[in-house]
Design a protein around this nucleic acid. Structure first.
Lengths: 329, 329
DNA sequence: TAAACTTATTAAAGTAGTTTAATAAGTTCA
DNA sequence: TGAACTTATTAAACTACTTTAATAAGTTTA
């Protein structure tokens, strides 16, 4: 990719990102936001209008002079198919360019079946809605590029290159569910793009964490990061609540306290987030108080509860949206 | 900074980086390495030669056709003053553009004195060698931009903006010593620019770690990352070897094993590095064997010993070199 | 040893974003 | 209500990197 192709790609990505994150904008606003010249914005917007990607929305109220023309991303220029592969069921959502639901449903879990069954199912969705240009999938396993490198319990998906095996005529993006959730949280809360966050999920199949450092996902050398059940907090050299998830139990409080202390000492993130169905404010207050006895409080992260499902849903969309900004139409 | 200024800065940075990392290069080699056109390289090299930044070194042997002209960065175009602020003494090195030592000495520690004493000292060095354009300082404390945000034991330096208080007519860069060491290690070993490494130092004043994730230093929300003494491995909710640093002692082996297990479970780095004066191969083998009992061995990092002093020295230079590539002359 | 081939460099034409000037379309105020 | 001002858009001149062509300076081979 030559240097001016990169410049061009940068401009298009910038314009798309702005338009996808706001209802509508004028050329002057885009010029200002991207620090590029008005004529350049004008040229690119014209091209985007020509190919139906951007809609010209008429005139904005005057700001003291000639009224500016208003532009918005065409919601139906591209649709996205978001697929959530879960143990009990496979959820999917078809959304427009602004993440507005067009169709939503849950079907039998494909994780227990051959991936080709999933491929066939997705193909029917692509035929029903030819506007779909991207499929983003969330997976309860480790992802390395297009490959599922580790997915306990679902051998049919282990070490599969999903792009190859699904073999569909659209962009395929896969991501680990915890990683998607932490990205979703970051965006839902409007946190900075270089945030450092750790999202903790106790889960039925053992705990896990999604880790974002300097705004980038921490995947690890062998895609094994965030496997907090292997932190040797208990006597058995693991981190697993033998006492169960009893929010009143002192032992459970001590366990989570040590986890937080460990993460804080090593990474010093600004926030640690828990699933709202797993902990409550009272519990976190107790934990917070407990950790302060052993750790300087000015360096402790904020402890928050959040809605994991919402964060996960949003996160997968954010990942798809980033891809959308990169695509060429 | 407008878009084409960025393009220009990118090109200059690219050329400098190449020339500073190789003895000499032809224009064609630079063209190839940077994916920019020959005439553009030619233009920039010409400018750099004109201002004395680059030397024209004559003709290379023929590769089957017309012989190419050979270019190299002028070693004496800029000198750098590297300052290592340590407890017992302050070391400094003046180096040329290829990190060749021009002058080296150790003087009384400035950490116990007012920073203005350091300023006066550095000023004499700048007068002695007017080629010095950058001062890079390594500090046993947390650094946030130009500010020393935390430095136990040296209250005169705490919360000082070093750029302001030193008030010198050159670029000032400060970095934590552990962070510099991990960068130095990365470069000395020629590791990839997105490596994930943890450098562990037991130290006299308590242990610390320099953490590099996806090629970026992890500094933490309040510059408190890597404070591994606060990891609650012992019963007292800390990580401090009560048994002393006895490499034969089972308790010490267990302690380090748990530290490695913790780091691996959370971050899954490719390497964990120890100081060669603190551990030995035999000890690390024992630790490695120990961790494998509780942690999947395919996800364990490689354990290495390295020369901390060399890594630190090299790291501070690498940081200064990066700055040098950004500067305008 | 001269024609054919290779590689490096320079020159000229092409492409794409920026800057500046001109024009269009509003608002404000005497 | 029209002169002065404000903001948006378009047009033209400018700048800078790329591409292609021409030239320079070697090597190889019949």
């Amino acid at each position: 990719m030559t240097m001016q192709d990169q410049v061009k790609a940068n401009i298009i990505r910038g314009i798309r990102k702005l338009l996808l994150n706001s209802h509508s904008m004028s050329k002057a606003e885009i010029t200002e936001a991207l620090s590029i010249s008005f004529p350049t914005v004008s040229k690119f917007i014209q091209e985007m209008v020509n190919r139906g990607e951007v809609l010209s929305l008429g005139l904005l109220p005057s700001a003291g002079g000639r009224r500016a023309r208003n532009f918005a991303f065409n919601p139906d220029f591209v649709h996205t198919l978001l697929v959530y592969l879960e143990k009990e069921e496979t959820k999917y959502v078809i959304t427009d360019a602004f993440n507005k639901k067009i169709q939503e449903d849950a079907v039998e879990s494909f994780l227990k079946q051959d991936p080709r069954a999933l491929s066939a199912f997705l193909r029917t969705k692509l035929i029903d809605d030819p506007s779909i240009r991207t499929i983003a999938m969330g997976i309860p396993g480790a992802v390395n590029g297009d490959v599922i490198s580790y997915i306990p319990g679902y051998p049919l998906y282990a070490n599969q290159n999903m792009r190859d095996i699904l073999n569909l005529p659209v962009e395929i993006i896969i991501e680990n569910d915890m990683n998607a959730a932490v990205i979703g949280y970051q965006n839902r809360k409007g946190l900075s793009s270089d945030a450092s966050l750790v999202y903790i999920y106790m889960g039925a199949n053992g705990p896990g964490a999604g880790i974002l450092i300097n705004g980038k996902l921490v995947k690890g050398h062998t895609m094994f990061s965030g496997e907090i059940s292997f932190i040797p907090i208990n006597d058995n050299n693991r981190f697993l609540p033998e006492s169960g998830f009893d929010l009143e139990d002192e032992r459970f409080i001590a366990l989570i306290s040590k986890l937080i202390q460990t993460i804080s000492a090593l990474l010093n993130p600004s926030q640690i987030i828990f699933h709202q169905s797993e902990v409550n404010e009272l519990f976190l207050n107790k934990v917070n108080e407990n950790v302060r006895r052993y750790f300087p409080s000015e360096h402790l992260p904020e402890l928050y509860v959040s809605d994991w499902d919402k964060d996960y849903k949003e996160g997968l969309w954010d990942i798809a949206k980033s891809k959308l900004c990169e695509m060429s139409f």
